[in-house]
Amino acid sequence: MNIVNFTPITALSGGLLIGLSVALFFIFNGRMIGISGIASNFLISKDNRIENFLFLLGLILGPLIYNQITGREINISISSSLTLLIIGGILVGFGTKLSSGCTSGHGISGISRFSLRSIIATVTFMIVGILTVLITGIL
């Protein structure tokens, strides 16, 4: 194993902001953020639909505001084929709906609550993610 592209300072800073968002949402609105939950509930449930929509809108405004303030370009690279993107998207949507949480809902909010369910979910999706990268790297 080699350590590469390690950016602890920006990772920690970004993480603190994510934690701040989770904390404020809890103190003011009384809910623990889970983005798969917010997104899927926006799609299928009338409860809190406006709040859910505004949160998702905020997510999308985030990069635009960052870009306005700092003037920095945001570059991302998605190298997967169209077929893989569709399969991956369905797996992520289906899996997070079935297990009621994703990286934010289980990985941050659930672990903050010391929820055993969320700890087990997080360990599981991390191990499977690592194995998937290992296998696709070999193929």
Binding site: L91, G95, L98, S99, T124, F125, M126, I130, L131, T132
Partner: peptide, 14 residues
């Protein structure tokens, strides 16, 4: 919980 997390992990890793 487990099956959902496995599917999610696979899509995430993909």
């Amino acid at each position: 919980l487990i099956i959902g997390s496995v599917f999610f992990g696979a899509g995430w890793g993909l």
